[in-house]
């Protein structure tokens, strides 16, 4: 086991992917010589050469379009989108082409492209640099959408995403890049939890807290704080946002009878709405309370001095947990 930051764990995972398959390429703005603005690709150009780690022009639509062309011819490009809000110019390529080519070509065309997106707020970086656009992609059939929450998952999930034959939108929790965790860099991914499975991050008995990405840590801290009130909170890290692992979700809710979903994205029409509907449909007779949601407001991402009010924190999450006991 090695102690790595989440950012470094991604770097090590990408390094493994480059080593294991000569068809893997990394491309994006400043990913080469600089190593990415968050240094996720630090040193990879030096070690793997300029033909495999490519500094592209600032042109997200062109980057993703080019990656699709490379994938059409058997490559496995990993595109870095520098900040979440910068993915919008590439959404057309992702939604109209990347997600649909396999279907349209009767399975004759595979597009194993990974789009890495640092997401969410918490670093004082204002709008365009702090957004949570995951539902744009979960709503689009044909894309896998995943979010890692800690260093160990970052290391394995990025490798699983690169070797996956479906296109993967890979969300990285920007404000957790510097969080450290234990990673077994010698372990292969064959025995790891599959990419499309959720994980019980903390077992509990009274209420299920569903979360992903940057809020997993917040929810774990909330669960520990809730013990002071005598409440046993189970935290489930969804990991895969599309497809959803409803098996793990419903098993947890059937056990606890209560459910809160938390994400940074706006509550309105967010992933929590879909989860709440599914949990209600599938666990109706087990529920002691309605499924509650905690998330961002339906506003643009606020200026940096206001973001602490926008982002779900312990108080808001624990308040929702409390409310599930009021029915």
């Amino acid at each position: 086991m090695t102690t790595l930051t989440l950012s470094r764990a991604l770097n090590e995972g990408l390094r493994k992917a480059l080593e294991n398959d000569p068809k893997v390429l990394i491309m994006g703005e400043d990913v080469g010589k600089l190593g990415g603005v968050f240094r996720v690709t630090d040193g990879l150009m030096k070690d793997f050469g300029e033909n495999r780690v490519i500094d592209t022009p600032l042109a997200e639509s062109g980057i993703v379009g080019t990656a699709i062309g490379l994938a059409l011819r058997g490559y496995r490009p990993v595109c870095e989108i520098q900040f979440d809000g910068f993915v919008y110019p590439a959404v057309d390529q992702i939604v109209s082409q990347l997600a649909k080519m396999r279907y349209r070509s009767l399975g004759n065309v595979a597009l194993p492209v990974v789009i890495r997106i640092p997401c969410g707020g918490g670093i004082g970086a204002v709008e365009h640099h702090s957004e949570s656009p995951e539902v744009l992609f979960t709503h689009t059939a044909g894309l896998r959408v995943v979010a890692c929450a800690d260093a160990a998952d970052a290391f394995t999930m990025i490798q699983q995403s690169v070797s996956c034959d479906d296109p993967v939108i890979f969300f990285e929790p920007k404000r957790r890049y510097w969080d450290k965790g234990e990673v077994d860099t010698a372990a292969g991914v064959a025995d790891a939890l599959p990419l499309d499975r959720a994980r019980v991050a903390l077992e509990g008995a009274d209420v299920t807290l569903l979360c992903y990405g940057p809020l997993v840590r917040t929810c774990l801290e909330s669960a520990i704080a809730a013990r002071e009130d005598g409440r046993s909170v189970e935290v489930v890290d969804l990991r895969s946002l599309s497809p959803l692992d409803t098996e793990v979700i419903t098993a947890s809710v059937r056990k606890t009878g209560r459910c809160v979903v938390a994400h940074e994205a706006p509550v309105y029409a967010g992933l929590g709405a879909e989860i709440a509907a599914r949990v209600t449909e599938q666990c109706f007779y087990c529920l002691e309370a309605p499924v509650l949601r905690v998330g961002g407001f339906h506003t643009p991402y606020p200026p940096s001095r206001l973001e602490e009010h926008y982002l779900p924190d312990l108080d808001r999450i624990l308040d929702a947990v409390d409310r599930t006991f009021g029915y």
Binding site: G62, G65, T66, I68, G69, L70, R73, Y75, Q97, V109
Partner: peptide
């Protein structure tokens, strides 16, 4: 390798396919 109904979308794809030819 396809017909594309989003105008211009396939031009970067052709670039990628050409890039694959160059790499190989």
């Amino acid at each position: 390798l396809g017909s594309y109904a989003i105008v211009g979308a396939h031009l970067p794809m052709a670039v990628g396919a050409a890039w694959s030819a160059k790499l190989r």
